[in-house]
Design a protein around this nucleic acid. Structure first.
Length: 487
RNA sequence: GGCGCGUUCGUCUAGAGGCCCAGGACGUCGCCCUUUCAAGGCGAAGAUCAGGGGUUCGAAUCCCCUACGCGCUACCA
């Protein structure tokens, strides 16, 4: 049997990391078993549609490097892959269910349902449909359906148990008596998730339904529809939730959790994939960096843990740094070039020339965790003057303002002796190191002054290299300017 | 409230009766390297395995109870 899995998002906004992680697992699982992975759009709630989400869904997957074999955009043998375009199938299924006595039309109004729930709440009774329309005769049901609006409710069993054999959690038992008759087909003719899921997964030949843990309590509904329709159910794997710092399910409220936000901030897709995949799953007892190749040959649902995982940014940052350092030199250069253009202040963008960028890239490599930091880190290379700084910053690391002046004067003198033709890192280093003698101080004591004068802050890219890249004129100009300000 | 799922260092996890007075990684701290900041190297602290009962010669691992957390409880997915 060929494995077929799917990612079935709703077009209700940019996919969030937790949701996408479900797609990653489903995709990896299919690939490990040489099967297919497809995308299906679940747009059965017409009220929640958000324009543009379809593109965001595709873009999220593409960004992570997840390819799908069938989907709305590329078609496939089971097209259409959008639920709003398959309404006849759901309606046919609903009719089958009605004719088999496993579903019934419900004519209850929203008002009655509200009143019923209010009464149940007041009486501290569990909420649930009271079954009023369950016993409407076939003839009457047929007749009323001509004039009244109705939904189709699935008739849940009243006795016994429904048992889910979850790949991750094992056996989960539900008492049928506690289940209630849920809506399968809404009054607007659209199916609910429950009905659409069974119809589509069956029609599309899905073998494993991989979804979030929040679905586990509706599993009995799904199992019973499968049975009523006479279909073989898929296998189920309910993945643990990804939770935010508040330990609640990650959501828009908990902050920026849309996958593409991380792309925009400067995370590498490979790092994100690595991070996501190791949230709830592990290869063994020590692997923290895992290649796409290894993932696609070793991922196993059986090794997914059942407990929720916290989205830990620190860890993501670490991984991103690791992946940055693993990039080939030319890839890194291209990345720096790209992100410099994106993150440098508007007025400096055109000044960022390829030669400077190429010289700066190696310096940046060990110092970048998130690509968005690139602009601010290299800003000082472009423009005649150093970025703005205060006198306090300039003198912060030395004993006094006078001391700063001494450092700047000495540096000026030493650097001035380096001829333009010899202006490179080695010579610059020698010149500045010679100040240890002139000033009678350790380099690390006085060098912060020069960092501020040249880079606008006490910490930044290595000074000697930076001065070399900056060029003799601009370097001396900046130190002179700082000297003038210091008095 | 009901039902369900879950509970190993702050975090992600390894662990499927003896290899575990619990291993790895992130983070933290210290040292080394060092032109600042990083990166890197080395090292340390950090988990009475949620608590309590069993079962067993022996339990993080099996069973029961309790607590806590989360999820679901819609004509949302």
């Amino acid at each position: 049997m060929t494995v077929r899995t799917r990612y079935a998002p709703s077009p209700t906004g940019d996919p969030h990391v937790g949701n996408i992680r479900t797609a990653v697992f489903a995709w990896a699982f299919a690939r490990v078993h040489g099967g297919q992975f497809l995308v299906r759009i679940e747009d059965t709630d017409q009220n929640r549609l958000v324009p543009g989400s379809l593109e965001a869904i595709y873009e999220s997957l593409r960004w992570l490097g997840i390819e799908w074999d069938e989907g709305p955009d590329i078609g496939g043998p089971h097209a259409p892959y959008v639920q709003s375009q398959r309404l006849e199938m759901y309606q046919a299924a609903a009719n089958t269910l009605i004719s088999r006595g496993r579903a019934y039309r419900c004519f209850c109004t929203a008002e009655r349902l509200d009143a019923m729930r209010a009464a149940q709440a007041a009486a501290k009774k569990p909420p649930g449909y009271d079954g009023l329309c369950r016993d409407v005769t076939e003839a009457e049901s047929e007749r009323r359906s001509q004039t009244e609006s109705f939904v189709v409710r699935f008739k849940m069993k009243r006795e016994g148990q429904t048992v889910l054999n979850d790949i991750i959690r094992g056996q989960v038992v539900f008492e049928n008596a506690l289940q209630d008759d849920f809506v399968a087909l809404k009054s607007d003719g659209f199916p609910t998730y429950h009905l659409a899921l069974i119809v589509d997964d069956t029609e599309m030949g899905i073998t494993h339904a991989i979804r979030g843990e929040e679905w586990i309590s509706s599993a009995p509904k799904h199992l019973q529809i499968y049975e009523a329709m006479g279909y073989e159910p898929t296998k189920f794997a309910h993945l643990p939730l990804i939770v935010g710092p508040d330990r609640k399910k990650l959501s828009k409220r908990t902050g920026d959790t849309a996958l593409l936000d991380y792309a925009r901030k400067g995370y590498l897709p490979d790092a994100m994939l690595n991070f996501l995949v190791l949230l709830g799953w592990s290869l063994d007892d020590h692997t923290t960096i895992i290649s796409r190749q290894t993932l696609l040959t070793n991922f196993a649902l059986e090794r997914v843990v059942p407990n929720p995982a916290l989205f830990d940014l620190e860890r993501l940052n670490f991984l991103n740094g690791q992946y940055i350092r693993e990039l080939h030199a030319h890839e890194w250069l291209r990345t720096v070039d790209d992100w410099a253009r994106r993150t440098l202040p508007e007025h400096l963008r055109t000044a960022a020339d390829p030669a400077t960028l190429a010289a700066v890239a190696p310096l940046l490599r060990e110092r970048t965790a998130v690509l968005g930091e690139i602009g601010p880190a290299i800003e000082f290379f472009f423009g005649a003057d150093a970025p703005e700084f205060t006198i306090d910053q300039l003198t912060e690391k030395v004993s006094s303002r006078e001391e700063a002046v001494r450092v700047l004067d000495a540096a000026l003198m030493a650097l001035d002796d380096v001829p333009a033709a010899a202006w490179e890192t080695g010579a610059i280093e020698l010149a500045i190191r010679s100040l240890e003698g002139t000033l009678g101080q350790k380099l690390r004591k006085f060098i912060p002054v020069l960092y501020v004068a040249v880079e606008g802050r006490a910490q930044g890219l290595p000074l000697f290299d930076s001065l070399a890249i900056l060029g003799r004129d601009r370097s001396l100009h900046r130190i002179r300017a700082a000297r003038a300000r210091a008095g």
